[in-house]
Design a protein around this nucleic acid. Sequence first.
DNA 1: ATGGTTTTTACTGCGTC
DNA 2: GACGCGGTAAAAACCAT
Length: 340
Amino acid sequence: MTDTTVRRYQREEDESDREPETDRERERESESDRETERERADEFVCPECGGKLESDTERGETVCGECGLVVEEDEIDRGPEWRAFDSAEKDQKSRVGAPTTKMMHDEGLSTNIGWQDKDAYGKQLSSRQRQKMQRLRTWNERFRTRDSKERNLKQALGEIDRMASALGLPENVRETASVIYRRALADDLLPGRSIEGVSTAALYAAARQAGTPRSLDEVAGVSRVGKDEIARTYRYVVRELNLEIRPADPKSYVPRFASDLELSDEAERRARQLLDSAKEAGVHSGKSPVGLAAAAVYAAALLCNEKVTQKEVSEVADISEVTIRNRYHELLEAEEGLEV
DNA sequence: ATGGTTTTTACTGCGTC
DNA sequence: GACGCGGTAAAAACCAT
């Protein structure tokens, strides 16, 4: 029980970098040839001062080494394959999987129908035959992808179900999780990632979306993949699917903790109230929501004369006692500050 | 890689049952 | 004496730069 809690609390809204770049990618293919020719012709000389040009592939600019003139802005990036190359440092992990071939579920063992309309001797097919082949191609493709994805889905849904019940998550969360998973599958987010990882990430996301969050540690506890992979996959999925998930609200942890500790409704209400004033006072930011919730529950129990020890709270919340102490001081201060 | 912030671990002293 | 509680210092973990 070393490492705990959901990090990346309020930073999660940085959904800034998501423009669909497909158009540009298409352009690149046709333009890259022309582009290189142009470069050669210009021989990298600055039109202003005649100095040598240097191209900055990070920014996609061509700059004069002498006078600093930006010759070409936003030029085509001729770097390898994916656009993620640009922001490799920033977002290293969110790379799409390797190009498929080897990773296809059937390892390429399923039927393939060639695209050329020729028979085994290389002769053109009659138009009737061509149509027939076209139909066969269509259906073959449909069946192949369908049953591979179906299989995949079946396994993933099984996992989601298993984990969800281990975490005591309600039906609707499971549904949400499977919807997320289906979308991930449909968007080809899977190649290069484990089914386990993605289903766990989907479940984690679903739980948060439904307002019944589980901490990363809890989720990792019932999953077969490690915490960091879950976190990574989770971020990836959230970004690619444009899921809107706010940082977890501390209040959403309260009911669970309260019931685990067998506290009265009164205390539970008090805890929410504490969190509300904390929010107003802005004690919030940067702190783990779980810790805040735990502290609120503890403080509330105290205020309502219900016996709970810090240790008990720290156990159900999976948070250290020290953190509870710190938070709960802040909570009480915030409350007093508001009421005076 | 580094620095800053938050959380955890480990240890201490104090009061109460 | 064990237990609950509070505080501190150092270490670890995380995020952002």
